[in-house]
């Protein structure tokens, strides 16, 4: 067991990389739940985003040649955000307009995300598990040896931005009002349904961003089930972070650290890899059991609103 600087540097960078998708998703989940809609579909939306990003980049490469095309990964990111928003909108329609049980609706989308990519992959590549590798990944920014994807920086920049939007703008105030007491907000002329749609779609856009980061930032292809529970962990982080951007920053860092530790410990003789992989999940359970009692969700979360 050798805790030298190389190990610690690798652990630090790995923590930032592992935190990024969790942070995007958890902030997304925060917007959705603050508006009163539980979005457990985020796990599946990450997958849809990742699939979209990888497919868009790979298809353009197939049409235009391998490049380099510096704009291409960004197109993939935009497409992933759009698809993420679209899938979340479906969740919104079913749970806001048709007043479905939001957890069941979200689970349905997660089930869809487990099956549908295989159909699409079979159509394009003739195999059901992964896409072709892409040549144009997102670039790296930063000094030699510490270079990170721009999306990593973006994720952390989103924290103050989300805080400002949620607590310092009229939109944020209305969003929170709709999640806490929709009847009161409605009486004051706030359009409850529209704000909830915005909250849900925003969460999908952010989860799509997380998916794009996984597919063309962290890796260079889509792999089936590559989200590996990140959407659920992000929701746990959101609860642990008390539906607050700053709390979410620290809680996702904790989960990111747990994942990074698991990765860095693999192949060492300290702990067996198969057990270490379960580490973030165990941390999630412990966190939910130990701390959730003291945090309070938005009052109207999970309840369909009826005029």
């Amino acid at each position: 067991m050798n805790l030298d600087t190389a190990f610690l540097t690798a652990l630090f960078l790995s923590t930032l990389r592992q935190t990024t998708p969790l942070l995007f998703t958890a902030l997304g989940g925060m917007f959705s739940e603050r508006s009163g809609v539980v979005n457990i579909a985020l796990e599946g939306i990450i997958l849809f985003g990742a699939l979209t990003a990888a497919l868009v980049v790979e298809r353009f490469e197939a049409a235009l040649g391998p490049g380099p095309h510096p704009w291409l990964p960004w197109l993939g990111v935009l497409a992933a955000m759009a698809v993420g928003g679209l899938v979340a909108w479906v969740h919104g329609v079913v749970s806001i307009r048709y007043r479905a049980d939001q957890i069941i609706s979200g689970t349905a989308i997660n089930l869809l995300a487990a099956g549908a990519p295989s159909l699409v992959l079979t159509y394009f590549y003739g195999n059901a598990t992964s896409s072709k590798e892409v040549a144009n990944r997102l670039p790296l920014l930063g000094p030699e040896g510490f270079a990170l994807s721009p999306l990593v920086y973006l994720a952390f920049l989103l924290v103050p931005l989300a805080w400002w939007v949620l607590f310092k703008t009229p939109f944020g105030l209305r969003l929170r009002a709709v999640g806490e007491h929709p009847e009161a907000a409605d009486t004051l002329g706030v359009n409850v349904y529209r704000l909830r749609y915005v909250g849900v779609v925003l969460s999908g856009v952010l989860a799509g961003l997380a998916g794009a980061y996984l597919a063309i930032g962290f890796l260079n292809q889509f792999v089936r089930g590559m989200s590996a529970g990140m959407g659920f962990i992000a929701l746990a982080a959101m609860i642990f972070g008390k539906w607050h951007p700053v709390g979410i920053l620290f809680s996702t860092l904790l989960f990111g650290f747990a994942s990074a530790l698991a990765i860095q410990l693999q192949g060492t003789e300290i702990l067996p890899a198969v057990l270490v992989q379960a580490f973030p999940y165990v941390v999630t359970v412990l966190v939910l059991a130990g701390f959730i009692g003291r945090s309070r969700p938005p009052a109207a979360v999970g309840k369909p609103y009826e005029k």
């Binding site: 749970s95 349905a108 869809l112 099956g115």
Partner: peptide, 24 residues
């Protein structure tokens, strides 16, 4: 037909989604 067997799981997921929405 060479269509992935996952078609069935997609059908399942859609059924869950639609039942959740009360079949519209």
């Amino acid at each position: 037909l060479g269509i992935s067997r996952e078609l069935v799981s997609v059908l399942q997921a859609l059924i869950v989604l639609f039942i959740a929405a009360g079949g519209f």
